[in-house]
Design a protein around this nucleic acid. Structure first.
Lengths: 231, 231
DNA sequence: TACCAAATCTGACTTAAGTCAAGGAAATCC
DNA sequence: GGATTTCCTTGACTTAAGTCAGATTTGGTA
């Protein structure tokens, strides 16, 4: 990890959390936050590390995960740019409750706890934004929980693929597709399963003619049936 | 469901969310909130109902759940007194994302969305409390998710029993115990399984001499091993 | 290009948990 | 207090998914 310079306040403006702040306030945030860059496989923090502050991912992607007592990894969150992570302990106290690792070369803004809490007290608008962000994640965790306990792996995979295709923007093409940018082992863990089972789920969807797998590229032949499986 | 009168502002003071407000502010909250009482099995709201506001449970207990497309119930949250529920859409918009049903005779305070959002803008202290509440639930959902995808049913049951025993306050007795107040079918769904499997998990713990089951009363013979299973 | 290591896939097997069907126990209601 | 319904348990069976071991592919690098 190395520390870099924040190029402009425009970058800060793009972060939903800060979108409505004045130039003055953005300047203040720049003054106490730090840009940090990470190589693939770099650990950003470990579960139980002393909590110093939270991050906003600017570039790249990373996984947030826990290691169970039997040593099994559970991916809790896949983080994409402009999203905050490790913000939970800001308000709850305690150490980092999870670990985070870069999945590719990444850039994140580190915001120290104390300074941010001072800011939030002066600028209550931010706490409403924060509440909206938490609310969204609560909803998404509730859905993940429901999915994992009521659907089988191929259904969860279908849902994951649809989301990925949507965010890739190819969902309106005659043959929608995605290139998977994160390792299948991470996807497996995110879907609450293991690589072997995920591999079989891919095969199942392919054998049924719903998708076509070409290495890391997944093409959808039958979006209707994929959506049917996902719900 | 019938509407009752709020007895005093002291009740409001006991709610963590409102613990630091002035008498004046509490009076204001009383003025726009409504006490509602529910019989066992009463539905408080249904998934997709138009969102009107959130609740704080004062007495009794209830389950918050979703019904999957195959008709299976997933209990997401078991609500105990002085806890807020259905507060997520306050900040995210949309309808109720879950359903809620009373597990016994219960009493809840209903707080309408618009009035509450006005209050929160004037009183930013409340949003910090709210953030703390959300943070706690995010952590707990992350743990639930990890448990459900990495532990087997008897381990999850062990963890559940320990929590119940702690909140019953009998954990320091020579033979800690709890009386289960909610139906086993609800516990099963909360633990991400079905009644038959839960029943077998109880039996397994009993056969191993860890607990003793007497109808709805569970006695712990070997707390050490129960804790071992739970982690 | 050829090599190596990591990631992924495949097959054979095991196992935890779900399904179905039936019986027993508890709670609830006249 | 007996009947009825709801809840819980048990047994036999099926199945989805995990385990283990080995083969294959891929990507990065010399």
């Amino acid at each position: 990890m190395k520390t870099a310079e924040l190029k402009s306040n425009q970058t800060l403006r793009d972060i939903p959390l800060f979108s409505e702040l004045s130039i003055e306030q953005l300047r203040k945030i720049s003054s106490f936050s730090k840009l940090k860059s990470f190589e693939k496989h770099d650990r950003i923090f470990n579960e139980n590390d002393f909590y110093l502050g939270f991050y906003i991912l600017l570039k790249g992607s990373l996984k947030v995960f826990k290691i169970s007592s039997q040593g099994k990894e559970s991916v809790v969150h896949l983080v994409r740019p402009l999203t905050a992570f490790a913000d939970i302990p800001l308000f709850e106290g305690g150490n980092y409750p999870v670990s985070a690792e870069a999945l590719e070369e990444s850039l994140a803004l580190f915001i120290p706890k104390e300074k941010f809490l001072e800011l939030i007290c002066k600028e209550p608008e931010i706490s409403l934004k924060m509440l909206a962000g938490f609310a969204k994640r609560l909803k998404s965790l509730i859905n993940q929980l429901e999915d994992i306990s009521s659907k089988e792996v191929s259904n969860r995979l279908a849902k994951y693929l649809i989301k990925e295709i949507k965010s890739a923007g190819t969902d309106k093409l005659p043959e929608p597709f995605v290139k998977l940018t994160i390792p299948k082992s991470t996807i497996a863990s995110y879907l609450g399963t293991i690589t072997e089972t995920l591999s079989r789920a891919f095969k199942k969807l392919q054998d049924e003619g719903i998708i076509r797998v070409n290495g890391k590229k997944i093409f959808v032949n039958d979006m209707k049936r994929l959506k049917e499986l996902a719900k």
